[in-house]
């Protein structure tokens, strides 16, 4: 069987995200954007809002569920009871969704530094963001095993 070379999805998505954030004048606008992303995030199935999918290390509750597809790509659904956190998770999902598991597992999310998210978020939120990324990478790694 000759598998097609997995498409490199992440880099263009990261560039796009950086460009989007460059358009905003100040952090209040960036937060407005995150809130919009949060509001637009596709609802998560109630059955997936379980402790097993709960991310540790967040001030608010965040759930992420993953689905593995036949082509080795992963898709995610997520939810949070805080809207900015929901925006952050939506942003991470936009980066990762429907990407090959191998690429997700080894991804270097330099864009998060570039747009200043880690520097700007409170330590709690920043740790929360890291925990979300970790959880997704771990899921990807497990799906490869």
């Amino acid at each position: 069987m000759t598998d097609a070379q997995p498409t490199m999805n992440l880099e263009p998505r990261q560039q796009e995200l950086i460009e989007t954030f460059e358009m905003f004048g100040d952090w209040m606008e960036k937060y407005e954007h995150l809130i919009e992303l949060g509001k637009e995030l596709k609802p998560m199935a109630e059955a997936d809002r379980v402790d097993e999918n709960l991310i540790q290390g967040c001030q608010s509750r965040v759930w992420i569920a993953c689905k593995t597809h036949d082509n080795g790509h992963l898709t995610f659904t997520a939810d949070s009871d805080a809207i900015i956190t929901k925006g952050l998770v939506a942003l991470v999902l936009e980066l990762f969704s429907n990407a090959p598991a191998a690429e997700i597992a080894t991804a270097n999310l330099h864009c998060l530094q570039k747009i200043g998210l880690h520097d700007h978020l409170s330590p709690n939120r920043s740790n929360g963001l890291s925990s979300m990324v970790q959880k997704i990478k771990l899921t990807a790694l497990k799906s490869l095993a």
């Binding site: 209040m28 937060y31 001030q59 608010s60 805080a82 809207i83 900015i84 939120r125």
Partner: peptide, 21 residues
């Protein structure tokens, strides 16, 4: 309901130090 953590983030961004949790 508005999550206290969201409010604190937006307050902090406007220079207001409040506590949540």
């Amino acid at each position: 309901a508005i999550h206290p953590a969201d409010l604190a983030t937006l307050l902090d961004n406007q220079g207001i130090a409040a506590r949540t949790g």
